[in-house]
C-alpha cells in the first residue's frame, strides 16, 4: 500500500504540487490523470525516490521513501517518462545490469531476466543494441526493467506517449496483464486510455489532487442531467413562451442565435425524461420550425474538463521538460 501525505513540491516560487494526499491499495490499476504540467511526473518521481519533496511523506508498505529508501525502493518498479536506457547495451545486457543493481540473487538473475523478457515480448530483440530499437520496443524494455526484482508496485509514467496505434494496443494489453499480479499506477493525459485500463482514477490539475475514485463515482459527480441544444426559427418571445410551457424557465439558457429570426436555447433536462416530442409538436402547432434538437450526454470527458477547468487558470509548466502533445480528450 502506498500512503502519500501532504506532498508539496516547490521550484522557487512555483508550486508544482500543493499538499497532495492519497492512498493506493494493493491489487488495482490506478490512473493518474491530468493535463500536461499538472504535476503527474513530479508526483511519480517523488513516490519513487527520484526527487525529494519540499514537504510531506510517501510510505510504501510502511517504509518511508527517504528514511528507509532501500527497503521502499525494493517494492517499486518505475518506468520514468523517458525510458532510462543505456543505448550502448543490448536489452539482455541492460536487464542483467538492472537485475544485479536491484540486488536480485545472482543465481536467479538469468532466469528472471528471461522471464521479464518473455513477459514484455523483448526476447526476439534481446541481442540488438538498444539504440537500434524502435520507440515501442524501447518502451517494452523500459517496462521489463521495472518488472525486475518482482516489485509489488509498478509505476509507469506516460507509457504510451509517442507510440503508434499497434504499439499502443500492445502496451495497454501488457498493463492489463500486469494488473493481475501487481498494483499498477500509470499516468496519462489521455482520458480514454486511463478509463479503458484503470480501476480507479486520481485526477491532478495545477498541482492539486482534485478527484479520486472509480469511473462511475467520478461520473456521478456531474449529477444526472443532460443538455438539450435547440435552434428554432421564429420570434424569440413566442418560442420562449412555448418552451416555458414545457420546461422550467430556470433550466433554459438563451444563447445568441447565428441567424436573424432564429432562437438558440440550451435546456437542462433530467436524464430519465425525454421532452423532445412535446417540444417538437408544441413548436409545430405554433408554426415554429425546429432546426436543431440535439441531446448532449455528459460523459467522462466532461468530468475531466469540468474538474481540470476549475484549476486551469493556475496551471503552469511543472518542470522544464518537453510535453508537447495537446490534451487529447
Amino acid at each position: 500500500m502506498i500512503e502519500v501525505k501532504h506532498l508539496t513540491k516547490t521550484y522557487g516560487n512555483h508550486h508544482a504540487l500543493k499538499d497532495i494526499s492519497f492512498k493506493i491499495t494493493n491489487g488495482k490499476i490506478y490512473g493518474l490523470l491530468g493535463p500536461n504540467g499538472a504535476g503527474k511526473s513530479t508526483t511519480m518521481n517523488i513516490m519513487t525516490g527520484c526527487l525529494a519533496a519540499t514537504a510531506g511523506t510517501v510510505k510504501i508498505n510502511g517504509f518511508d521513501i527517504y528514511k528507509d529508501a532501500t527497503e521502499a525502493k525494493r517494492l517499486i518498479g518505475y518506468l520514468p517518462e523517458q525510458p532510462p536506457l543505456y543505448e550502448d547495451m543490448t536489452p539482455e545486457e541492460y536487464l542483467t545490469f538492472v537485475a544485479e543493481a536491484k540486488g536480485v540473487d545472482p543465481e536467479r538473475v538469468a532466469r528472471q531476466v528471461k522471464e521479464v523478457m518473455e513477459q514484455t515480448s523483448v526476447t526476439e530483440m534481446k541481442d540488438r543494441l538498444i539504440r537500434n530499437l524502435s520507440k515501442g520496443c524501447r518502451q517494452r524494455v523500459g517496462i521489463a526493467q521495472a518488472l525486475l526484482g518482482s516489485p509489488e508496485i509498478i509505476i509507469l509514467d506516460e507509457p504510451t506517449v509517442g507510440l503508434d496505434p499497434k504499439q499502443l494496443v500492445e502496451i495497454r494489453e501488457m498493463v492489463r496483464k500486469l494488473g493481475k499480479k501487481h498494483t499498477v499506477i500509470i499516468s496519462s493525459h489521455i482520458l480514454a486510455e486511463v478509463s479503458e485500463m484503470c480501476d480507479e482514477l486520481l485526477v491532478i490539475s495545477g498541482g492539486e489532487l482534485i478527484a479520486q475514485g472509480e469511473l462511475s463515482e467520478l461520473e456521478a459527480m456531474l449529477g444526472d442531467t443532460d443538455t438539450l441544444h435547440l435552434v428554432i426559427r421564429g420570434d424569440e418571445a413566442g418560442v420562449l413562451e412555448v418552451l416555458y410551457g414545457i420546461v422550467q424557465k430556470e433550466n433554459c439558457t438563451l444563447r445568441s442565435a447565428t441567424k436573424e429570426g432564429e432562437v438558440s436555447v440550451d435546456v437542462s433536462i433530467p436524464r430519465e425524461s425525454d421532452v423532445r416530442d412535446r417540444i417538437f409538436f408544441a413548436m409545430a402547432d405554433r408554426r415554429y420550425a425546429v432546426l436543431t434538437m440535439e441531446i448532449e450526454h455528459k460523459s467522462l470527458e466532461n468530468v475531466f474538463l469540468a474538474l481540470t477547468d476549475r484549476t486551469a487558470d493556475s496551471i503552469e509548466p511543472e518542470q522544464p521538460e518537453s510535453e508537447e502533445e495537446e490534451l487529447e480528450t
Binding site: N45, G49, C50, A69, T70, K73, Y78, Q82, P84, E87
Partner: peptide
C-alpha cells in the same frame, strides 16, 4: 543526457 540518472535514483542502492 540519456535520463538514466532516474534509473540510478530509483534503484534500491544508496
Amino acid at each position: 543526457r540519456a535520463h538514466t540518472d532516474q534509473l540510478l535514483y530509483s534503484l534500491p542502492l544508496p
